[in-house]
Design a protein around this nucleic acid. Structure first.
Length: 407
DNA sequence: TCTGGGGTCCTAGGACCC
DNA sequence: TCTGGGGTCCTAGGACCC
């Protein structure tokens, strides 16, 4: 039996623990009312006014002028996510955090320990409240997918058990959009075919869906019957996997065509990516650049390096080259950088290069420690401040503090 | 009323190799 | 020369999730 545990209004609820006076009020987490950005989470009070996650902040301010707007606190959410994880682990070691605020538990064969599913769920509810101060909703089913849909139907602060054999009947009356993996685009395509509810989908011939949507059609057919058909849902619970990519991006307060400003931002983002690579002990093969212009058109460019790296210098050189080739000198709304092709071990290197890398690596961990003590802004590559040329960066490959320009 | 930031997975074409 | 078939890597774009 699979449990899906989903925290209720997670970010808002955590903020309420830090400031109880927020309770019962319309609260929006994600930024200030006049900022570029979208709602990360809205309190149930704010939701009454049509505010929901992914809504632009400015729209939220219009719909709910009296709402309290808060910047997010990722460290707080991570901390509470760990607390949630610990509570769940007290039930079973087969726990998989699917995101910061939701998890799957495999409680197959745990009846002797925890009793029937509903009893276990209520115990989980109580412990969650006692140990974290937070409410959650629990969906119970034979597949991950149905458990997830069930927890959504159980919100807020509820439990829903879909008994074995009842999956298709449970899903049938729901809007197709409720199926995980069906977003705006698929929903629209299904609507054009007259398919609005999961039951409509389940009645169709699988071969029809396959002709229409290929592999995705087969997965849809499976989902409509309550199966973890293909892709992510098929994997086993609790198998921890390494990350496949690391990225950072930034949307400017105002669109800009100032090369110096854009390249300084790019360097800063790339340093953050490099730092996380080192923290995870990874080297990356491929560097990705993302650019979004004033009209919201997004382009991506990628380059695979001759050898995997975790060094600021090599990554900045690569991301800057990608940027210079891709940029049309028009106004930029967003710039982002990412890495993929992550490898644990160092690739084959000649000795000289290996030594050079080791020196760089040591100097960079010193930089990272300084940043730990004095903050991210205390140590920055020259290029991070000025959008310097590659040659200039080469003179000061690791941005040691002593080589900082005088302030 | 313009539309964040961090991810995953999928598709599709071309290069390249056997 | 008018031509295959599979596998894998690379790049670009897009859907989707929280």
């Amino acid at each position: 039996m699979i449990f899906h545990v989903d925290m209720d209004a997670f970010f808002v609820s955590v903020e309420e623990l830090y400031d109880p006076s927020l309770k019962g009020k319309a609260v929006v987490v994600g930024g200030q009312r006049d900022q570029r950005g979208v709602v990360s989470a809205a309190s149930y009070e704010a939701r009454k006014f049509g505010v929901h996650s992914a809504l632009p902040l400015r729209s939220a301010a219009q719909r709910c002028p009296h709402a309290i707007f808060l910047d997010g606190h990722p460290e707080r959410y991570r901390e509470y996510s760990h607390k949630v994880h610990r509570v769940l682990e007290s039930f079973t070691p087969k726990v998989e955090m699917a995101s910061v605020d939701e998890a799957y538990l495999d409680l197959a064969g745990s009846e002797r320990l925890w009793g029937p599913p509903l009893k276990a769920a209520h115990l989980l509810h109580e412990r969650m409240k006692r140990d974290t101060g937070l409410n959650c909703s629990v969906g119970i089913a034979t597949s991950r997918m149905v458990a997830k849909v069930a927890s959504d139907q159980a919100k807020p602060n509820g439990v829903l058990w879909v008994q074995p054999g009842a999956e298709a009947a449970f899903l049938a009356p729901l809007d197709v959009r409720k199926l995980p993996g069906v977003g705006k685009v698929t929903e629209q395509k299904l609507h054009e075919l007259g398919i609005r509810r999961v039951g409509d989908l389940a009645r169709l011939e699988t071969s029809f869906l396959e002709r229409r949507f290929g592999q995705w059609g087969l997965a849809l057919a499976g989902k409509s019957h309550g199966l973890d058909a293909g892709g992510w849902f098929d994997s086993e619970i609790g198998a921890h996997e390494d990350p496949k990519s690391i990225s950072h991006e930034h949307t400017f307060d105002e669109d800009t065509a100032a090369a110096v400003k854009i390249e300084a931002t790019l360097a800063r983002l790339t340093e953050k990516v490099a730092r996380r690579l080192r923290e995870h002990g990874f080297h990356a093969r491929t560097v990705h650049l993302k650019l979004r212009d004033a009209s919201f058109r997004t382009v991506t460019r990628a380059r695979t390096l001759p050898a995997p790296t975790q060094l600021d210098r090599e990554l900045i050189l690569a991301s800057r080259e990608l940027f210079r080739k891709a940029w049309d000198r028009g106004k930029v709304r967003l710039i982002g950088v990412g890495v993929s092709g992550l490898e644990r071990a160092e690739g084959q290197l000649d000795l000289l290069a290996a030594e050079q890398r080791e020196r760089d690596r040591r100097a960079l961990s010193a930089v990272d420690r300084l940043r730990d003590r004095f903050g991210e802004a205390s140590v920055t590559l020259a290029s991070g401040l000025t959008g310097d040329t590659p040659e200039r960066v080469h003179e000061n490959p690791v941005g040691l503090p002593g080589k900082q320009p005088r302030k």
